[in-house]
Design a binder for these strands. Sequence first.
DNA 1: CTGAAAGCGCTTACAG
DNA 2: CTGAAAGCGCTTACAG
Lengths: 362, 362
Amino acid sequence: MATRSKVTIADVAQAAGVSTATAGRVLGSYGYAAKSTRDQVTAVARKLGYRPNGLARSLITGETRTIGVVAGDIRTQFYASILRGISDVADEHGFGLLITNSDERLDHEMRALDLLMEKQVDGLIVSPCDTRKARHLHRISETQLPIVLIDRAVEGLAVDQVTALNAEGAEAAVGELIRAGHTRIGVVAELLEPEPGGIERFIEDAHAGLVRTAKSMYPSWQRLLGYINAHRAAGLAIDSSLIRPAGSYSSEAAHREARDLLSHAERPSALFTTDGTMSEGVMRAIAEAGLVIPRDVSLVGFDDLDWMAFTPPGISAISQPRYAMGAAAARMLLDRVAGSTAPTSGLTMTPEFIKRGSIARR
Amino acid sequence: MATRSKVTIADVAQAAGVSTATAGRVLGSYGYAAKSTRDQVTAVARKLGYRPNGLARSLITGETRTIGVVAGDIRTQFYASILRGISDVADEHGFGLLITNSDERLDHEMRALDLLMEKQVDGLIVSPCDTRKARHLHRISETQLPIVLIDRAVEGLAVDQVTALNAEGAEAAVGELIRAGHTRIGVVAELLEPEPGGIERFIEDAHAGLVRTAKSMYPSWQRLLGYINAHRAAGLAIDSSLIRPAGSYSSEAAHREARDLLSHAERPSALFTTDGTMSEGVMRAIAEAGLVIPRDVSLVGFDDLDWMAFTPPGISAISQPRYAMGAAAARMLLDRVAGSTAPTSGLTMTPEFIKRGSIARR
DNA sequence: CTGAAAGCGCTTACAG
DNA sequence: CTGAAAGCGCTTACAG
């Protein structure tokens, strides 16, 4: 460790000929101080290059003015936008942001949370990677530390949350494809947390209208439900060979599934992707297969990424307000940090269909 | 503030019937403790739900195991990848990450730095928004707090830095266009920190071979220099009406300049962009003008973004190793934090040309 | 309006 | 191997 010359309040106090209590009052701007002492202390502090030590203050006040975030992967546009929304709100309120990645792995999430707790964050915003196994979140929540969940909720965990209207958005998107005359529509979806009973059972039940969206259902499952609902509403059967679980948040897995889907004799005339990562993998498969959108295959993606606007012919998408979701989560969290005891609430944001040139009529 | 039940070392010590010193030694795993006491204290700690308070520890040890980052805008792929590289290395070493955005504004950068200093970070990674006005960075550096600069260096500030070989990369990219037969190549570049003498003067001097790359030259200026050098090497004149300063890190500004460039009677046959944000604005202008790449216009961008691989016909790019740059910066910083007094070093990463379908022969 | 004293939750010498 | 004491840099009552 380099020897950093720390100027403390005591140093300033001594140089200014006042007590540390007084120096503290003016430097921390709490309590009274005569204008003349204030000027004197301020001048000395500036001359000595005094910088407050937030650690000491936080140890006493019990607040760090820092919030902790557990994202899946900050490299994705999804999390990057959310993070910027959180960051701007935190900034406005003078809060710092401690950011971690879980890569959707429970052990990473727990490690990240431990780190954030140890650093005494005033609150947490987390995108939980398991919507069922979350004893660690329950435990944290029991200590009264404010938590806001984003993108996904956790079964039985009564904390504030911000999510998107996933099933409805997906249904609208797939509905557009169906209205354009498509009947064989492929889906590439993560579907990593298996629903009880398995995917075949889920499809069957959903198509029979027996599945209700639960907030704690994983987003990709909700979006698959929307896909099925759109078929049901149109009186269309489901061909389960068109439903492709990538099994992970990876564009490589999506690429693999899409390539397979597109190489079949009776390939689907349209594709639906359940999020940005899937969209990128699917786009790569389409490009590599030499297919042209929308002539050879139509496409709609969940989540509107930057490139969808300018990639010919323009990719239609369901846009979820990522930045606003992050900002809202931060506001909800800061309300709690400020002491709000309002009942737990869930904010559901409505995604919007953005029509571009990627859907052909059939 | 909610009343969070804090279990302290003193509580554990009392319940375990040992002194706080002993409890501290086992819980903090420093110093000796008999196996039996260790087990006893650990058991009690777990039963009481003890969680260490990093604030108190940091106040004593003088290290927070936290590093602070000032990025331009974490939403961009450029910063998002860098951040992930930093994050992974920080993680490996058990460090947390406090992340801020400057939006390339000096006042924001200074505010961010104040916040990070107050939180007593062990070191800083910053992408400085002004390579000349940086008294605040000098001042911080004088306190011996380790700083690593990323993407841009600061004149006269002797700290470690990680940058890309900008002029050379740009020269290679533009060279590809020239070799393909292009002679009228438009550039859209930020160029926000004016070089002394103005842009006309810079172009003239550069074309005469009088400008040397300086590390503290703003990246977009270095890339413009590469553009000019490529022309000079090929014996081509420069038409300064083809050089378009966006004046800010905004795809809107890039869009405006590109639209203007493309609407002229004698429009350029190829375009070069100096970074990802410019590339997105230019892509939008090309799409809106109904032009087809590479039939109507060829394109090469500095920085290889995800979509360039799958957007037909594939956009050729100069790829800079963003993730590796971030990881390297973090490693350099952690070496300093660990006490390294090695001479200040600058790591220059070599970008790589990725050939795709966006360059037509003329 | 100002100061002396205590204390936040730990770690660090120093005895024993 | 363990404990009593001091102290990190602040803020918080409490006197005066």
